[in-house]
Simulated assay, not measured.
Amino acid sequence: MSGGNNDVIVVGGGVIGLTTAVTLAESGHRVGLWTRDPVTRTTSAVAGALVWPYRIEPAERVGGWLERSLGRYEQLALNSAETGVRGVAGLMTDTPLDSLGSWASRVRGLREARADELPDGFGQGLRATVPLVDMPVHLRYLEERLRAAGGTVERRTVVGFEEPSREAPVVVDCTGLGARELVPDASVYPVRGQVVIVENPGIDEWFVSAIPGSTDTTYVMPQPYGVLLGGTAADHSWDPRPDPAMARAIVERCARIRPALAGARVVEHRVGLRPARPRVRLEAVRLPGGGRLVHNYGHGGAGVTVAWGCAEEAARLATA
């Protein structure tokens, strides 16, 4: 039995939790967001944040979530200074056009790259203009938007869902990697990502080369705060500390693609643990006390990419 002032409590302050809370609050529900960490210190804040699917399943559902999210981000990009969302052109290598889902028809300027547009050593790639998100700015924007819609944000650490269910009849679980212990769900595991931020030597396009199954990826994301260079994808690694040798290797890989990066001054090192799962869990269950619990976690490396589509589905499940 709930005894609080909220209709819904969303647990988790990353991009999935914030977007879900905003969606619910703007639909007229009284929403409280509980987050263990400040929103700008969540895993989401470390993301390269290119709107493109990466390390996420099931493919047959991801496309729909992505299409709905893409439309939202394109609208947000009209006010990039406030939202942190920009439409940026770039190159995705080793990704045949016919390997993409129906969502690809929504991507601006998507086409096969010409041979003269490919860096040395690459035989195929796609050019496109897609949303690229400055995550610290975007997370603050979402938090402010939630408050403007009447929602509240509290720093609270929970050890189970009984606590929020005593304060609201519906709880939405957007705890990411935390679901491993909270649910508990042993199928959730970390995919460690390390990135390096350098001063921008004049790069204005993104570049991604992510070979499936490889622990090393190469990506260059020009952001307002510098260029975010990546990266790594180490399954089941919990180490939050930047590895100096990995950082050097990241810069070297990126400099082979964009030689101007070789001498760029390093501003910051970041590590994030992507909340991976064989499939995203997005479903409603009953709590022992009769409340409703909606799970929305396991988005791997594509939380930003599918955030709005998943939020809309989670909101429907929360209010059904």
Rank of each mutant, 00 (worst) to 15 (best):
V266G: 05
A59L: 05
V51N: 07
A307F: 07
P201H: 12
G230Q: 11
D134V: 00
P275V: 14
Q75K: 14
M135W: 05
A113L: 08
T93I: 09
A149C: 05
V294R: 00
P58K: 10
M221V: 13
P288V: 12
G17S: 00
P224E: 15
R248W: 09
G202E: 07
E57I: 07
G48P: 02
P242Y: 07
L182C: 10
L18D: 02
A249M: 13
A104L: 15
R36A: 00
E112I: 14
P259H: 11
A47T: 01
L139Y: 00
V183M: 08
G71W: 04
Y297L: 09
R127Q: 07
L228Q: 06
G101T: 06
L132F: 05
P275N: 15
V306R: 05
L118R: 09
S80P: 08
R192Y: 04
A49H: 08
V10N: 02
S80A: 10
L261I: 02
G4F: 02
F161G: 01
R41G: 02
E57L: 14
A260W: 08
L110I: 12
V46S: 02
A247Q: 04
C310L: 11
D98Y: 08
E74P: 09
D134W: 00
L118W: 14
P58D: 09
M1Q: 13
R55D: 15
D116Q: 13
G290H: 13
V46E: 04
P224I: 07
E167I: 03
A77M: 10
V191D: 03
G226Y: 02
R279D: 13
R155H: 07
A59M: 06
E199R: 14
Y73M: 14
V170Y: 03
C254S: 06
T35A: 00
R61N: 10
F161T: 02
V196L: 11
N6D: 11
E57S: 14
T35N: 01
A311K: 06
R155E: 01
M1G: 14
G289E: 14
D7H: 03
T83M: 04
V280I: 11
P222G: 08
E57T: 08
I250W: 06
G109M: 11
I56S: 06
D116R: 09
R180V: 06
M1A: 15
L18P: 01
H295Y: 03
A318C: 06
D98V: 04
E162M: 04
P275F: 13
L261V: 12
R166T: 00
A245C: 05
D235S: 15
A315V: 06
E313F: 12
D185F: 09
D7F: 07
S69V: 12
M246E: 12
R147D: 03
E167G: 09
W65I: 05
A59Y: 13
R114H: 11
R316N: 15
V159C: 05
W34V: 00
N5R: 15
R108E: 12
E67G: 10
T215I: 15
S165R: 11
E154N: 01
R316S: 10
R114V: 12
D173Q: 07
L146N: 01
G176Y: 03
V267P: 06
E117I: 11
D185M: 09
E167H: 12
A255V: 15
E181Q: 14
